[in-house]
Design a protein around this nucleic acid. Structure first.
Length: 354
DNA sequence: AACACGGGGTT
DNA sequence: AACCCAGTGTT
C-alpha cells in the first residue's frame, strides 16, 4: 500500500478512535439499523436526526414492523425532520424488503443502490459498515476534508467534481476496515475539519494539508452558488365550525410537503387584505360550501417560514362558520395528522386549549 | 446538468 | 443573511 494512503487512513482512524461520539448506530452492524440511520442523516445533522432514530427503532424494531405500518403513521413519526420523500421511500423500501426478500437486506453496493432513497452515498455507507465492502462514501464532510488536505478546487456540486472526489475517496479507503474508515473521515469533517474556523495549527494533517500550507482553508471546498430563494405568500383558512371542528387538506400535487396535511390554502403573489381575499375565486368557491359568519386575521405580520429554496410569508385567517361541514374534523384530532412545522407551530399556539 | 426538496444550527 | 448538514430523485 502506498505510504501516503496509509498515513492518511491511519491518522484518520487513530483520531476517530479517540474522538468519536458514542452514537447508537455505531454499536451495531445490523443493516436495518444502519440503513435507517443513513436515510435520516441525509442532509441532516446528527443531533437533529438522533431523536428520530431512537423513536423509529422503538416503534419499528424490525423492518417488518416498518413495512406493516401505514404511510400516514410513518409520515407522522417523521414530522419535523424534513425532506419527506425520505419517509415515503423509507416505507416503500421496507415493504419491498419485507415482502420480496423476506426481510433480508441486500448485502452489496450494487443491489443496495436499487433501493428507493438509496443513492451512491447511502449504498456505500451500508455496504461498508454492515458488509465490510470497500466502498468509499462521499458526503459533505468528505468533500471538505479531501478538498482541503489535497488542495482540490474543483467545484463539488457539479458532475466532474463529484467524479473526481469519488475516485480519490475510493483510492484512499482502508480496504481492511472500510466501515471504520468511512465513519472516521466523516466524523473528522463534522467535528474537526469544520466549515468555518477549523483549528488548523493543531490538526493531525497540518504538516501535509495543502489548503493549510497555501492559506486556502477558508476557500475550500469550492461550491457553485445556487439560485436565490423564492418568496411565496400563503393564506391559510383556519376553519372554526360548530362543536370545535376545523378542516385539513392533504397536499397531493408536486412540490413541498407531499402527502402532509395543512389548512385550506390560498396562495397569492403578494400579501393581501381581507377585502382582496373575499374577492378571490378560490375563496368564493370555498365559501359556497360553508356558512361563514366571521373572518379575522390571526397575524398581521406574516410568519416567515424559511426552507432551503423558498421563504413562505404566511398569514392565518380565522374563518368562523355556523354549520358543521362534512369535511371537518374535531380540533382534538389535528394532532394525529402529519403536518409541516409551519402548521404545527400555529396549531400548538392557537389550539393550545383544545 | 440543473433543480427541487425541510428544518435547524452556526457564524 | 448566507452557508451548511452522514444526499436523492426528477426533468
Amino acid at each position: 500500500m502506498p505510504k501516503i494512503k496509509l498515513d492518511f487512513s491511519n491518522k484518520l482512524i487513530t483520531w476517530y478512535l479517540h474522538n468519536k461520539r458514542d452514537l447508537p448506530w455505531r454499536n451495531t452492524a445490523n443493516p436495518y439499523h444502519i440503513w435507517l440511520s443513513e436515510i435520516m442523516l441525509q442532509q441532516t445533522r446528527v443531533l437533529q436526526g438522533l431523536p428520530y432514530y431512537l423513536k423509529f427503532i422503538e416503534a419499528y424494531p424490525k423492518v417488518e414492523d416498518l413495512a406493516t405500518a401505514t404511510e400516514e403513521e410513518v409520515l407522522k413519526n417523521w414530522q419535523g425532520l424534513g425532506y419527506y420523500s425520505r419517509a415515503r421511500n423509507l416505507h416503500a423500501t421496507a415493504k419491498w424488503i419485507s415482502e420480496e426478500f423476506n426481510g433480508v437486506f441486500p448485502n452489496n453496493y450494487q443491489d443496495l443502490l436499487k433501493l428507493k432513497g438509496v443513492g451512491d452515498y447511502t449504498a456505500s455507507a451500508i455496504a461498508s459498515i454492515s458488509f465490510n465492502q470497500p466502498e468509499a462514501v462521499v458526503d459533505g464532510n468528505v468533500y471538505r476534508v479531501l478538498s482541503r488536505v489535497f488542495g482540490i478546487s474543483t467545484p463539488i456540486n457539479i458532475g466532474p467534481g463529484q467524479k473526481e472526489f469519488k475516485k480519490l475517496a475510493q483510492q484512499l479507503i482502508d480496504t481492511t476496515q472500510p466501515g471504520i474508515y468511512n465513519q472516521a473521515i466523516m466524523e473528522f469533517g463534522a467535528r474537526y475539519c469544520v466549515p468555518q474556523n477549523p483549528d488548523c495549527p493543531n490538526c493531525i494533517f497540518n504538516d501535509s494539508c495543502i489548503a493549510f500550507q497555501q492559506k486556502k482553508v477558508a476557500e475550500l471546498p469550492v461550491k457553485i452558488k445556487g439560485k436565490p430563494v423564492k418568496k411565496r405568500y400563503f393564506n391559510y383558512l383556519v376553519i372554526l365550525s360548530e362543536n370545535e371542528r376545523t378542516m385539513l387538506q392533504q397536499r397531493l400535487g408536486k412540490g413541498i410537503w407531499h402527502k402532509l396535511y395543512e389548512f385550506p390554502l390560498i396562495e397569492t403573489s403578494e400579501e393581501i387584505t381581507l377585502a382582496v381575499l373575499k374577492k378571490l375565486p378560490q375563496f368564493q368557491d370555498f365559501s359556497k360550501k360553508l356558512n361563514i359568519e366571521n373572518i379575522s386575521l390571526f397575524n398581521e405580520k406574516p410568519v416567515v417560514h424559511k426552507l432551503s429554496h423558498q421563504h413562505l410569508y404566511t398569514r392565518f385567517w380565522i374563518v368562523e362558520t355556523s354549520e358543521a361541514s362534512e369535511s371537518t374534523i374535531p380540533i382534538s384530532d389535528v394532532k394525529n395528522y402529519a403536518v409541516p412545522v409551519l402548521i404545527e407551530n400555529f396549531v400548538s399556539e392557537f389550539f393550545e386549549n383544545y
